[in-house]
Nucleic acid binder design. Structure first.
Length: 878
RNA sequence: GGGCAAUUAGCUCAGUUGGUUAGAGCGUUACAUUGACAUUGUAAAGGUCACUGGUUCGAAUCCAGUAUUGCCCACCA
C-alpha cells in the first residue's frame, strides 16, 4: 500500500528528485529520444536572458510557456529541442558594472582602463550567469544543457566575425557618418537610455537667414544654424506650398548657405512660424530628415563643443559665445523678429548633467537596401518584409504583424557600432598613417595596424541566435546546411516580448535570410508582461517583485507555472499575485487527493498496462465522463496548437475538478467499487498526460506511484480514440442529475417545491434507462421522472438542449414565439447562403455586404449551410 | 506629438472569425461537512459588455467618433 501517500502534497519533498530523474534520463537532448529518422523536429531557442540580473517572474512565465510546448511536442513524438543560453547585453551590463564601480570607488571605466574594466565586467557576467542557469534548472525547464550557449562566448565570437566579414565583402556593411549623442565633458557617445531630460526655460529666437529669404524660422540654438542646409515645412501648410522644392542661396550673418525647402509631416504648423531650419549635423531629427531628402551635412561643432574652423569670426568660439555673437549680428542686421522665453526639454548626460551635443561621427552600418543576387536580387529589407507579408512567418497575436511591417517599411540602415567596451570587438583594423582600412579576423602583417576601438551592437550577435547556436558557420558548407543546422533550422517558435519586435525579431529575420537564405522561425509568439497585483511593473526599486524561487519554495513549481499560464493571453499583460498562486496550489493538491483516493480505494498499485474497458459494462455515467474526456482532449489539443494556453489550462482544471472529482467520483461512490477500476485508471492516466506540460512535477510524481516509466516521454493522448467514446449530448445527463440534486437540497428548505423532468431518449433509450439508476441512487425524491421512447409524443415543455438525448422540463413555453424566431433566422440564412452560392443574384445583399461575399466564400458557406440544417432540425422538433 | 492596444461581475480576466438566457477563478453570503481533499462540497447574490452614433433580422463582437488607462517610438525646433 502507498505508505507515502500523504494527505497533502508537499512539492519540495519531490521536485528535486523528479528534476534529477528527468535530467539523468537524457531525454532533454532529442538525440536520446530513440526517434525514427522521419520524426519531425520542433525547435525553440530560449530568448537569452540578460546577464545583468537574476531572473524575475516574467522569465518564469516565458519558461513555463516554452516548456509547455516542448513537453507537449516531445510527448507527441517530435524531435523536441530547446536550446538554453544567456545574453551579454552589452550596454546594459556595462552600465550596471560602471554604476556599481562609480558608487563603490568613485572611479570611471576610463580610470581603470579597458583591460581591467573588462575583467570586472566578465566576473560580474559569469556570476549572474551562474545564478540564472541555476534558476532555470530549478524550474525544471527541459532544455538540452549540452547545447548551452552565451552570446559572447568563443563559438558565437567566431560566428560574429564571420558574419561581419562576409557582409563587409558583400558590400552590406559599410562605414559612414551618423549623428550621435555626444557628451563634450565625458568625451564619449551616449546611448539613448543614458540620456536624461531636464525641463528648462530658454529663449526662442524668430528670425530670417537674410533679408531676401522668404521664410521666417524659429530656433533655440541659433549657432547651429550656421550648418543649415534646408528649411522644413509641413506638407499641408498652404503658406509655404509655393516654395517647396526650391533652393535659395543666402548669406547668414556672414556665412553663405544653400537652403532647400523640404516637407516633413513631423513639422508642426502651429509651433513658431511653422517652418524649421534643418541642421543635419547637429540634431537627431534633422539628421533623419537629411537622410530622407538627401541633404548635405555641414559640421559646425566639434568634439569639444567649439565651432569648427572655416566659420569666419565664429571659428573656435564656444557654443555659448557663438550663440551670443550670432544673435547680436541678427539684431544689428535687423533680421531678428522676436525673442521669447519658452519651456523646453534639454538632453543631458546622465552622469555629469552636461548638455548633450549631437555631432556626426564615423560608424559602421548594415545597408538594408542593397540588392543581393543570392536573394533573388532583393534587399534584406525587402526579403524580411516578404516573410511576414506572405505569412512565411506568423505572428501571435496577429496585430503584431502590422507593427513589424510598419517598422520594416521605415527601416533605415542599421548602425551596428557602439562606443562601449563590453561586447564583440569590431574586426576592422586601421593604419592611421595612410588611412587604410582592413576587415578580417586578424590584423594584417605589419606593426602599425590598430583595431577599431568600438564593439558591435548587442543585437548583432543575438540576431544570429537561431543559427549561431546550431553550429553556424561550420555547419554551413557550399550554401547548404549540414548536421545539426540541417536538422533543427528553421526553428518553429520564437516566444518573446512585444517590446522587442523591432530590436530583436526583425534583426533575427534579416540575419537569417542573409546567412542561410531562410527564415529563422515559423511563428512569433508575443507574450505580455507580468505585472504586480496592482498592475504596476515589477521592479527592484519598488520592491513589488515576486521571486520565482521563493514561489517554488513555498508553493512548488506547478502552482507557479499554472498561475503564470492561466489568465494570461498572448500579447496582453497579466497581473500576478500570491492569491493566484495559492489558488493553483489548491488545485495541485486537489489533483493529488484525487489520485490518492483512487489509488487507495481501488487498490491500484503498479499497473503498467493500459486497462481494457469493456463497452458493454459502461453505465451512462461512465459514458458521459469518457465523452467529456474526449471533448477535453480535442479542446486542449486545439488550444495548444493555437497558442491558447490559458484556455487549455482552464478546460483541464474544469474537467478534473468539476466533472471528474465533484461529479463522477461522487457518482462512483454509489456504485459498485471494483467494476470502476479500469475506467478510473484510464481517466487518471489520461489527465496526468494531458496536464503534464502544464504541471510537469506533480503529474510525474503521481505517475510514478503506479508506473515504472517516465511520464515525460509518454505518448500524449490522441483526441477521439478513447474507449467507449460516443457522440451526442451526454451533457444533458449531467444537467438532469445536477438539477435533481439541487432539487434535493432545495427540498430541505422548501418541501413543497417539485421538479418534474421528462427525458426524451430517442435512440438511446437503453442508456437513459441505465441513468435512472444513478438518479435513484442519488435519492432525489423525484418519482415522476418520465422517459420517452422514440416516437412517443412529447408534451409541451421547455427545450433545454440539442443532441441525441434531450431533456424537456415541464413548464411554460411559448412555442409560437420560438417557432417564429427560428423561421425568421432560417429565412435570413437561406438568403445568405444563396447569395454566397451565386445561385440567386441578390444585388441588394451583395451591395450591402460586399466584403463578406467576396472574401469569405467557402468556409462561410459550409458553416452557414450546417447552421441552416441545424436550425431546420430544431424547427421540426417544436 | 506619432503609432498600437485595452475598457465585460467587488477584483483578475475568458468570450474562436456577429447568433438563443454574456462565462470562469478569486472575493462575498447561506447551508452542508469526522469525508480522498485543516487546501472540501452545494447553492445564492453581483453585469446598461466605458460612452454616443452607424451597419445588420440580430452587436460585447463590425464601422465612425468621444472619454479614460496602458505600452512603444520620438523629444520638439
Amino acid at each position: 500500500m502507498s505508505e507515502e501517500f500523504e494527505k497533502q502534497y508537499n512539492p519540495s519533498d519531490y521536485e528535486d528528485t523528479v528534476n534529477k530523474e528527468w535530467e539523468d534520463s537524457g531525454f532533454f537532448n532529442p538525440d536520446n529520444l530513440n526517434l525514427s529518422d522521419k520524426a519531425e523536429s520542433y525547435t525553440i531557442v530560449l530568448p537569452p536572458p540578460n546577464v545583468t540580473d537574476k531572473l524575475h517572474v516574467g522569465h518564469a512565465s516565458m519558461i513555463a510557456i516554452e516548456d509547455l510546448l516542448i513537453r507537449y511536442k516531445r510527448m507527441n513524438g517530435f524531435r523536441a529541442l530547446w536550446i538554453p543560453g544567456t545574453d551579454h547585453a552589452a550596454i546594459a551590463t556595462q552600465n550596471v558594472v560602471e554604476k556599481r564601480l562609480f558608487k563603490e570607488t568613485g572611479k570611471t571605466r576610463h580610470d581603470l582602463g579597458r583591460e581591467d574594466f573588462l575583467t570586472k565586467v566578465n566576473d560580474f557576467a559569469l556570476g549572474t550567469q551562474e545564478t540564472i542557469l541555476n534558476q532555470i534548472k530549478k524550474m525544471g525547464a527541459s532544455m538540452d544543457w549540452s547545447r548551452l550557449a552565451f552570446t559572447l562566448d568563443e563559438q558565437r565570437g567566431q560566428a560574429v566575425k564571420k558574419m561581419f566579414i562576409d557582409m563587409y565583402n558583400d558590400g552590406i556593411i559599410y562605414r559612414g557618418e551618423r549623428v550621435v549623442n555626444w557628451c563634450p565633458r565625458c568625451q564619449s557617445t551616449l546611448a539613448d537610455d543614458e540620456i536624461e531630460y531636464r525641463e528648462q526655460a530658454t529663449k526662442l529666437y524668430t528670425f530670417k537667414y537674410s533679408a531676401d529669404f522668404p521664410i521666417t524660422i524659429s530656433t533655440t540654438r541659433p549657432e547651429t544654424k550656421l550648418g543649415d542646409t534646408a528649411v522644413a515645412v509641413n506638407p499641408k501648410d498652404e503658406r509655404y506650398k509655393k516654395y517647396i522644392g526650391q533652393t535659395f542661396k543666402v548669406d547668414f550673418v556672414g556665412i553663405p548657405l544653400n537652403i532647400k525647402i523640404i516637407t516633413d509631416i513631423g513639422v508642426e504648423m502651429e509651433f513658431g512660424t511653422g517652418a524649421l531650419g534643418v541642421t543635419p549635423a547637429h540634431s537627431m531629427v534633422d539628421y533623419q530628415m537629411s537622410l530622407k531628402n538627401d541633404l548635405a551635412m555641414i559640421k559646425v561643432i566639434d568634439e569639444n563643443g567649439k565651432i569648427h574652423n572655416g566659420f569666419g569670426e565664429y571659428s573656435s568660439l564656444s557654443v555659448a559665445e557663438a550663440r551670443e555673437k550670432v544673435v547680436e549680428n541678427l539684431r544689428t542686421q535687423g533680421l531678428m523678429i522676436k525673442e521669447e522665453e519658452i519651456q523646453n526639454n534639454l538632453s543631458v548626460c546622465y552622469r555629469c548633467d552636461t548638455g548633450i551635443e549631437p555631432i556626426p561621427s564615423k560608424q559602421w552600418f548594415i545597408n538594408v537596401d542593397k540588392k543581393l543576387e543570392r536573394l533573388g536580387n532583393k534587399s534584406l529589407k525587402e526579403i524580411s518584409l516578404e516573410a511576414a507579408e506572405k505569412n512565411e512567418i506568423n505572428f501571435t497575436p496577429e496585430r503584431f504583424k502590422k507593427t513589424y511591417i510598419d517598422w520594416m517599411n521605415n527601416l533605415h540602415d542599421w548602425c551596428i557600432s557602439r562606443q562601449i567596451w563590453y561586447g564583440h570587438r569590431i574586426p576592422a583594423w586601421y593604419k592611421k598613417s595612410k588611412g587604410e582600412v582592413f576587415v578580417g579576423e586578424n590584423a594584417p602583417e605589419g606593426n602599425d595596424w590598430t583595431q577599431d576601438e568600438d564593439t558591435l551592437d548587442t543585437w548583432f550577435s543575438s540576431g544570429m541566435w537561431t543559427f549561431s547556436t546550431l553550429g553556424w558557420p561550420d555547419n554551413f558548407k557550399d550554401g547548404k546546411k549540414i548536421n545539426e543546422l540541417a536538422k533543427f533550422h528553421p526553428t518553429q517558435l520564437l516566444d518573446t516580448g512585444s517590446e522587442i519586435i523591432t530590436l530583436w525579431v526583425s534583426r533575427m529575420i534579416l540575419m537569417s535570410y542573409y546567412a542561410l537564405g531562410e527564415k529563422p522561425f515559423s511563428n512569433v509568439y508575443l507574450h505580455g508582461m507580468i505585472l504586480d497585483e496592482k498592475g504596476k511593473k515589477m521592479s527592484k526599486s519598488k520592491g513589488n517583485g515576486i521571486d520565482p524561487l521563493e514561489v517554488i519554495a513555498k508553493y512548488g513549481n506547478d502552482a507557479l507555472r499554472l498561475a503564470l499560464l492561466i489568465g494570461s493571453t498572448p500579447g496582453n499583460n497579466a497581473k500576478m499575485s500570491w492569491e493566484k498562486i495559492e489558488a493553483q496550489r489548491n488545485f495541485v493538491n486537489k489533483l493529488w487527493n484525487i489520485a490518492r483516493y483512487i489509488i487507495i480505494n481501488y487498490e491500484l498499485l503498479i499497473i503498467n498496462e493500459i486497462p481494457e474497458v469493456n463497452e458493454k459494462d459502461l453505465t451512462a455515467a461512465d459514458e458521459w465522463i469518457i465523452y467529456q474526456l474526449n471533448t477535453l482532449k480535442l479542446g486542449v489539443i486545439e488550444d495548444i496548437d493555437n497558442f491558447s494556453f490559458s484556455q487549455a489550462g482552464e478546460k483541464l482544471i474544469d474537467f478534473i475538478w468539476n466533472d471528474f472529482a465533484d461529479w463522477y467520483l461522487e457518482v462512483c461512490k454509489f456504485e459498485n467499487g471494483n467494476s470502476k477500476k479500469p475506467i478510473l485508471i484510464y481517466i487518471l492516466r489520461s489527465i496526468l498526460k494531458l496536464l503534464h506540460p502544464f504541471a510537469p512535477f506533480v503529474t510525474e510524481v503521481i505517475w510514478k506511484k503506479f508506473n515504472a516509466s517516465l511520464l515525460m516521454v509518454e505518448k500524449y493522448p490522441v483526441a477521439g480514440s478513447g474507449a467507449g467514446a460516443i457522440k451526442g449530448g451526454f451533457n444533458i445527463i449531467k444537467n438532469i442529475v445536477t438539477t435533481i440534486r439541487n432539487a434535493r437540497s432545495e427540498n430541505k428548505v422548501e418541501p413543497a417545491k417539485k421538479v418534474e423532468a421528462i427525458i426524451y431518449a430517442g435512440e438511446n433509450f437503453e442508456l437513459i434507462k441505465q441513468n435512472e439508476i444513478i438518479i435513484k441512487s442519488l435519492k432525489t425524491g423525484i418519482n415522476d421522472l418520465k422517459i420517452l421512447k422514440k416516437g412517443e409524443k412529447i408534451p409541451d415543455a421547455i427545450y433545454v438542449a440539442v443532441g441525441e438525448i434531450e431533456i424537456y422540463l415541464i413548464g411554460a413555453i411559448d412555442t409560437a414565439k420560438e417557432k417564429a424566431r427560428l423561421e425568421k433566422e432560417i429565412a435570413n440564412l437561406e438568403k445568405f447562403v444563396s447569395a454566397l452560392n451565386g445561385k440567386l443574384s441578390n444585388k441588394e445583399f451583395a451591395e450591402k455586404a460586399p466584403e463578406k461575399v467576396v472574401t469569405i466564400e467557402k468556409e462561410k458557406l459550409t458553416k452557414a449551410e450546417t447552421e441552416l440544417s441545424k436550425l431546420k432540425e430544431q424547427l421540426l422538433k417544436i
